[in-house]
Design a protein around this nucleic acid. Structure first.
Lengths: 254, 254
DNA sequence: CGTGCTGTTGAGTAGATTCAACTAAGGTGG
DNA sequence: CCACCTTAGTTGAATCTACTCAACAGCACG
C-alpha cells in the first residue's frame, strides 16, 4: 500500500514505468509516527519535504485564545510541505491525527526528479494546485454552507480523495477524526457536530462506528450538499468531470 | 505606479536592476477593465497569466442557491493565475471590484524569465506560497473568529498588503468593496457587516467614507483582533517579524 | 425626477453556542 | 480481575450571535 502518491498522480497524468520507479525511490527514509504528534510547529524552519505514506494528518493553527483551527487534512499521498523551503519559517503547524508512516525527502531529491521527469513535475504542480483548490473550497464551505451541508461536503471530499489513493472499500474508509477534530475543522462546536452527524445518520446517508465511515448512498449524499468535485481536478477516475476535450493521459509533458 | 509587482517582490528578496528590467518588460499588453467585470469564469480553460497592475479584483464562486463566496482579494501586484495553465479548467471565477489595469502575460514569458532570473523565480515562488498562506489565514478567520475580529483582521491584512505595494498613505487606502462584498467574503450577512463596521467606527478604530478606509490607530486595531502578520512572510518592510537569522537580501538565488 | 444601488436601522427569528450532566469505551495499576 | 481514570460521545436547556425581513435614507445616473 505504498503507492498512494503514484496512484494519486496517475489520477491526473499517466506515468511511465520509469517515472514510477523514480517516485518509488523517493521513499527511502520511512518513519512511523504515533497519533496526535506534531510533525512541524509554527515558527519552525523548513527542512526536508514530508510525505504521508499512510495514516491521516492535518494542518492547524492555534489562536491566542486557545481555539484550534484545522486548515487541511493530509491523507496518504499528500505532501506536507512540498515547496515551503522558500520560506524562513512555518506559518502553521502540522500534526498527525492517527498513527502515520511519513517519508522524509531531501529537497535536493525533489529537484533531481523534477529535472529528469517532466511528467512527474507536471503532476507535482498539479498536487500543489489541487491543495490550493481544496483550501478554497473549504473556505466556501465555512463561509457559505450550513453545518449539515458543511459536514456532508467534507465527507464527500474525503471519499473522493481517499478513493484516488485506493483507501476506500465499498464506500467505507478509515475515519480517525474525533468530533472535536471535525468541530475545529468546520468552525463549529463539538456539540453541534455531534447533533449534525446524528442528523446525517438519521437520514440514512452515513454510518460511523469504530472509526469507520460508510456512505450508504453516495448519490444522495452528494445531492444533499450539492457536491461538485470539479475542484479536485481528477481526470482518470470514475468521478472525473465530463469534458468537451477528454485530452487524456500520455501527455507529452512539456 | 506600475511597480507594484516589483515592490511586492522586493518585500521578500532584493532584486538587481537586471531583474527589475526583466519584470518591467512583462507589462507589455496592459488592458483597462471596468469595475464588476469577470476576468475569468469557472469552467474556462486557462490561457494567459494575468497580473493586476492597478485596482482591486477578487476570486469567487457562486453556489447553486445563488450565494456568492469571495475567496481572495487581488490587489496591485497580485497574479490571478500564475500557475493554472497546468489545469484543464478554472474551478472558480475572477472578477474586478473596481476599475483595473490588467496585464496579459503569455506563459512562455513567465517560463523565460524564470530560466534566466533565479532571484525572480524564488520571488514568484514566494508569491504563490504567500497566496496560499493568506487563504489559510482566511480559513482561520471564518472558522475561528467572531464577526468583529474577522472584519478587523481583514482590514489589518489589507493595510499590510497594500503598504507592501505602496498604496497606503498615512494609514489610508482605497476601499472599493461594498458591504455586500465584505459579507460574501466573511461569510456574514450584509446587515451584520454594516453593524460590525459601525462598531469599529464607534470604537474609534477606523473611518470609512467615500470608499477610503483610514485606520485611526493601527496598534489598537491589531491588538483588537490579535493580528499576527507572520503568514504574509514580509521580510524587508517595517512589519517584518523579528528573526533569529536575518538572512536578508542579495540571495544567491539557487 | 424617478430608478436603482448602497447603506442604515429596527424587530423577530433561527442556527449554533455554552454549560452541564451523564454514558460508553479504553487503559492502568493494585 | 476489577476499581479507577480519562477521553469521546450524547443529550437537554438556556443563551447568544448572526440572520431574515422590512422599511427607509442618501446618492448617482439617466
Amino acid at each position: 500500500m505504498q503507492d498512494a502518491l503514484i496512484r494519486k498522480l496517475e489520477s491526473f497524468e499517466t506515468l511511465s514505468d520509469h517515472d514510477r520507479a523514480a517516485l518509488t525511490a523517493l521513499a527511502l527514509r520511512v518513519r512511523k509516527v504515533g497519533a496526535r504528534v506534531d510533525l512541524k510547529r509554527e515558527g519552525d524552519a523548513p527542512d526536508n519535504v514530508h510525505l504521508v505514506l499512510d495514516g491521516y494528518a492535518c494542518r492547524y493553527k492555534v489562536l491566542p485564545d486557545g481555539q484550534r483551527q484545522i486548515m487541511a487534512y493530509l491523507v496518504p499521498g499528500d505532501f506536507c510541505d512540498l515547496n515551503v523551503f522558500i520560506l524562513d519559517q512555518m506559518d502553521h503547524s502540522i500534526a498527525t491525527i492517527s498513527a502515520c508512516q511519513i517519508v522524509d525527502i531531501p529537497s535536493a531529491a525533489i529537484e533531481a526528479i523534477t529535472t529528469e521527469h517532466p511528467r512527474v513535475t507536471r503532476a507535482l504542480w498539479w498536487c500543489a494546485l489541487v491543495d490550493e483548490a481544496v483550501l478554497r473550497e473549504w473556505l466556501v464551505n465555512l463561509g457559505g454552507r450550513p453545518a449539515n451541508h458543511r459536514i456532508a461536503h467534507l465527507i464527500c471530499e474525503l471519499l473522493l480523495r481517499l478513493e484516488a489513493v485506493g483507501r476506500v472499500t465499498r464506500n467505507s474508509f478509515e475515519f480517525p477524526f474525533t468530533q472535536s477534530d471535525i468541530a475545529d475543522t468546520m468552525g463549529l462546536s463539538a456539540v453541534h457536530v455531534n447533533r449534525t452527524l446524528r442528523e446525517l445518520r438519521t437520514l440514512g446517508l452515513i454510518t460511523l462506528k469504530q472509526r469507520v465511515m460508510t456512505i450508504l448512498d453516495v448519490e444522495r449524499l452528494k445531492a444533499y450538499c450539492d457536491y461538485n468535485p470539479n475542484y479536485l481536478h481528477l481526470r482518470n477516475t470514475r468521478w472525473s468531470a465530463r469534458r468537451t476535450v477528454p485530452w487524456l493521459g500520455s501527455g507529452h509533458g512539456g
